[in-house]
């Protein structure tokens, strides 16, 4: 015997769903990864063969924190990260101090990077 859905339930679910969608959009906007889904994965081979051709491009880098190479509180930190995609090499990435996050060895991130003078400058990160 079919049971009819209570209209009151719809009345609650619709605004709730809208609110969740709204909050998600706000969150993504705030973390900078709002357009991550549209970023091209970082091509390490192309970078190695000629970074000049990638200059100014933005990429998505899926990586694991290897170690910190250098740190300046006024500038940021230089990390060595290992790419999660083949060839799983390590590259250096710069994380500006404005991106106030804690990074620890072994943590995995999606990083939105901009290539500037060959350096992978992190625009935003998403912890995996």
């Amino acid at each position: 015997m079919a049971q009819k859905t209570n209209p009151i339930l719809y009345a609650f679910l619709i605004p709730l769903t809208g609110a969740v969608i709204l909050l998600s959009v706000l969150f993504l906007k705030k973390t900078g990864l709002a357009g991550a889904g549209t970023l091209t994965p970082f091509d390490f081979t192309a970078y190695q063969q000629g970074w000049q051709s990638l200059e100014g491009n933005q990429y998505l880098v899926k990586c694991q924190i290897d170690r910190q190479i250098n740190y300046d509180k006024n500038k940021g930190r230089l990390l060595a990260v290992r790419l999660l995609a083949p060839p799983r090499e390590r590259v250096g990435v710069f994380i500006p101090s404005t991106l106030q996050r804690n990074f620890e060895t072994g943590q995995s991130y999606n990083m939105h990077v901009l290539i500037h003078e060959g350096l992978l400058r992190v625009q935003s990160v998403e912890k995996l």
Partner: peptide, 19 residues
């Protein structure tokens, strides 16, 4: 690596505001 790390950071200006 250590030496290059220092040089790279040295090239980045402090007031550099990313993103």
């Amino acid at each position: 690596i250590q030496h290059l790390g220092e040089r790279i950071l040295a090239k980045i200006p402090p007031e550099n505001k990313e993103g």
